Simulated scan of single mutants.
Amino acid sequence: MVIQELIEHQKTIQKVIDSLTPAIEQACEMMTTTLSKGNKVLIAGNGGSASDAQHIAAELTGRFVKERKSLPGIALTVDTSAITAIANDYGYDRVFARQVEGFARPGDLFIGISTSGNSQGILNAFDTAREYGCQTLGLSGRDGGKMNGLCDLNIVVPSDVTARIQEMHILIGHIMCKAVDDLF
């Protein structure tokens, strides 16, 4: 079982290398350009993708590998008071869009993470982010879902297995954070 999981992970990584390297480079450029201009990165996802959003934001405000100044990365998944109030008053599918409305400014980057590419709350947040002049970056899987039509760039991990998709999302997040470290 263990060997089979590692082999499946390795196969997915090879597919990512073969098909997504230019898109990952573009995502690195989006993040570094956003931050170098003094703008912020807003990130959201549900479940495991919420954890990935928090992880990436923490790498920006804390550090990834090297010592550098703190950078504005905000996970929209951490404020339970805001999440529950918005869900109660507007519905769960508005939780991230409402926060984007409050935090986003033109030139910011919104990153939405959804393994299916069809999470309604993430889709709504993309719509709002675009209305507010943000660049939009998606991390998805399977066929990319509805996110394909809502993102400036949607990185679609070539897998139907949620665990493999999530593993690649955090790897891509780390690669973007490495690009940030290299710039700052």
Score class of each variant (00 low, 15 high):
Lys146Ala: 15
Val65Gly: 01
Met31Lys: 05
Met147Cys: 07
Asn154His: 08
Ala75Arg: 04
Thr33Met: 03
Gly102Gln: 07
Asp79Val: 11
Asn88Pro: 01
Gly45Val: 11
Leu123Lys: 01
Arg68Cys: 12
Arg105Cys: 04
Thr128Phe: 00
Thr77Tyr: 05
Ala58Gly: 15
Val100Ile: 12
Val78Thr: 15
Leu153Glu: 08
Tyr132His: 14
Ala57Pro: 06
Gly133Glu: 07
Ala125Pro: 05
Leu35Val: 06
Val41Gln: 06
Thr61Ala: 02
Thr80Gln: 14
Leu76Lys: 07
Thr115Ser: 15
Ala97Thr: 02
Val95Ile: 15
Arg105Ala: 11
Thr128Asp: 00
Arg142Asp: 09
Gln135Asn: 11
Gly73Val: 02
Gly38Phe: 07
Ile83Pro: 14
Lys69Gly: 13
Cys151Trp: 02
Met31Asn: 05
Asp160Ala: 10
Ala163Pro: 15
Gln99Leu: 05
Gln99Ala: 04
Ala163Cys: 10
Gly38Ala: 03
Gly112Asn: 08
Ala75Cys: 12
Gly62Trp: 04
Ser81Tyr: 07
Gly62Ile: 08
Asp52Arg: 01
Leu109Gln: 07
Ala58Cys: 13
Glu59Lys: 06
Gln120Ala: 13
Leu139Gln: 05
Ser159Ala: 15
Asn39Ala: 02
Gln135Ala: 14
Ser51Met: 13
Leu71Ser: 09
Thr32Cys: 06
Val65Lys: 15
Asn46Val: 04
Arg105Leu: 12
Leu139Asp: 05
Leu42Ile: 04
Gly48Cys: 11
Asp108Leu: 05
Gly47Lys: 10
Arg63Leu: 12
Ile56Phe: 15
Glu67Trp: 00
Gly117Trp: 08
Arg130Glu: 01
Gln54Thr: 14
Gly145Ala: 10
Phe96Glu: 10
Ser81Cys: 13
Ile122Cys: 00
Ile122Arg: 00
Ile56Lys: 02
Pro158Met: 04
Ile83Lys: 09
Ile155Pro: 13
Ile155Asp: 11
Ala58Thr: 14
Thr77Val: 13
Thr80Val: 14
Thr136Arg: 03
Asn118Ile: 09
Ile86Trp: 03
Arg142Met: 15
Val161Arg: 11
Leu150Trp: 01
Lys146Cys: 06
Asp79Asn: 15
Asp152Asn: 14
Asn124Pro: 00
Tyr90Glu: 07
